[in-house]
Simulated assay, not measured.
Amino acid sequence: MAEHFASVDDYIGSFPEEVRTVLERIRRTIHEAAPEGIGERIGYGIPAVTLDRRILVYFAGWRHHVSVYPVPRGDDAFRRDTGPYRSGRGTLKFPLNAPVPYDLIARTVRHLVAERD
């Protein structure tokens, strides 16, 4: 049975320390890359960051990886850079046994913001 979390803090707090550290940094990266006025909530059981009360991006922790959803279309360079991390059409999957490319997560957020309009 899936757990239900009251907040993003509760969700992140449910993970072992090494995963919590990565999730907190992803959270900070998203907040730094997004415009002012974003919010947070739990959606589909995972953290969601909102902009203008609409979901902008989700992120999640798993046993062996962390994920960011959805994947924007982006430009050719973005598609090339995200290629190794794509899992399906709408997911970026970053293994926990390798450095997480936080700069790529920031680029993902900036593309998602740009593609909203």
Rank of each mutant, 00 (worst) to 15 (best):
H4Q: 15
H4Y: 09
A6W: 02
A6I: 13
A6K: 09
S7W: 03
S7Q: 12
V8P: 00
D9E: 14
D10W: 07
I12K: 04
S14H: 15
F15L: 10
F15E: 11
E18D: 10
E18N: 09
V19H: 11
R20H: 06
T21G: 07
T21W: 09
T21V: 10
V22E: 10
V22D: 08
L23M: 11
L23S: 06
R25A: 01
R25L: 07
R25V: 05
R28G: 01
R28P: 05
T29I: 12
T29E: 08
I30Q: 04
I30V: 12
H31Q: 12
E32D: 14
A33D: 00
A33K: 02
A33G: 09
A33Y: 06
A34D: 00
A34Y: 04
P35F: 07
P35H: 12
P35K: 07
G37S: 11
G37D: 09
G39L: 00
G39F: 01
G39S: 02
E40K: 01
E40L: 04
R41I: 03
R41K: 13
I42M: 06
I42P: 01
G43A: 08
G43F: 00
G43M: 05
Y44N: 12
G45C: 08
I46C: 12
I46W: 00
P47C: 08
A48P: 00
A48V: 05
A48R: 04
V49E: 03
V49G: 02
V49N: 03
T50P: 01
L51T: 03
R53V: 02
R54Q: 09
L56S: 10
L56D: 06
V57L: 03
V57S: 07
Y58N: 05
Y58R: 08
F59H: 04
G61W: 07
W62Y: 14
R63W: 10
H64W: 15
H64M: 10
H65V: 02
H65T: 06
V66K: 13
V68N: 06
V68T: 07
V68Q: 00
Y69G: 11
Y69H: 11
Y69F: 13
P70T: 10
P70W: 02
V71I: 14
V71Y: 08
P72Y: 12
P72D: 14
R73I: 08
R73P: 08
G74H: 10
G74Y: 08
D76N: 15
A77T: 15
F78E: 15
R79E: 15
R79Y: 13
R80L: 15
D81A: 15
T82F: 11
G83N: 14
Y85Q: 10
R86K: 13
G88E: 09
R89E: 11
R89Y: 10
R89F: 05
R89K: 10
G90F: 02
T91R: 13
T91F: 00
T91I: 05
T91E: 09
L92F: 10
P95R: 15
P95D: 14
